[in-house]
Simulated assay, not measured.
Amino acid sequence: MTTRSNVRLRRVYDPPEPGADGVRVLVDRLWPRGLSKEAAAVDEWPKAVTPSGELRKWFHGGGSADEFRARYEAELAEPGAVAELERLRRLAASGPLTLLTAVRDPGDSHAAILAEHLAE
Rank of each mutant, 00 (worst) to 15 (best):
M1T: 15
M1R: 13
M1H: 14
T3A: 10
R4C: 15
R4Q: 15
S5P: 13
N6A: 13
V7T: 06
V7N: 01
V7W: 00
V7H: 01
R8D: 00
R10I: 06
R11M: 03
Y13R: 02
Y13H: 11
E17C: 02
G19M: 13
D21T: 06
V23F: 09
R24P: 13
V27P: 09
V27T: 11
D28L: 11
D28Q: 08
R29D: 02
R29Y: 03
R29A: 04
L30D: 10
P32A: 05
P32C: 05
P32N: 12
P32Q: 03
P32R: 04
P32H: 05
R33N: 09
R33G: 12
G34Q: 05
L35W: 13
L35D: 11
S36W: 03
S36R: 06
K37P: 10
E38C: 07
A39E: 14
A40Y: 10
A41R: 15
A41C: 15
A41I: 12
V42S: 14
V42I: 15
D43A: 15
D43Y: 14
E44C: 03
P46D: 09
P46T: 06
K47D: 01
K47G: 00
A48Y: 00
V49K: 02
T50W: 00
P51Q: 02
S52W: 04
S52V: 07
S52P: 07
G53D: 11
G53E: 12
G53Q: 11
G53I: 06
G53R: 11
E54P: 00
L55E: 05
L55P: 05
R56F: 02
K57E: 14
F59H: 08
G61Y: 13
G61H: 14
G62K: 13
G62T: 05
G62D: 07
G63E: 08
G63F: 04
A65C: 08
A65F: 14
D66V: 07
D66Y: 04
D66P: 05
D66T: 12
E67M: 02
E67Q: 01
F68L: 10
R69E: 15
R69M: 06
R71E: 08
Y72C: 04
A74D: 10
A74H: 10
E75G: 05
E75I: 02
L76D: 00
P79A: 13
G80M: 04
G80S: 04
G80N: 03
G80E: 05
V82F: 08
E84K: 14
E84L: 06
E86F: 04
E86R: 10
E86Q: 09
E86G: 15
R87Y: 04
R87V: 06
L88K: 00
A92P: 07
A93F: 04
G95F: 09
G95Q: 15
P96F: 09
P96L: 06
V103M: 02
V103Q: 13
R104S: 08
D105A: 09
D105C: 06
D105I: 13
P106F: 09
G107V: 09
G107W: 03
D108V: 15
D108I: 12
A111Y: 11
A112E: 08
I113F: 09
I113V: 15
L114H: 05
E116S: 15
H117S: 11
H117N: 12
H117P: 04
L118I: 04
A119K: 03
A119W: 05
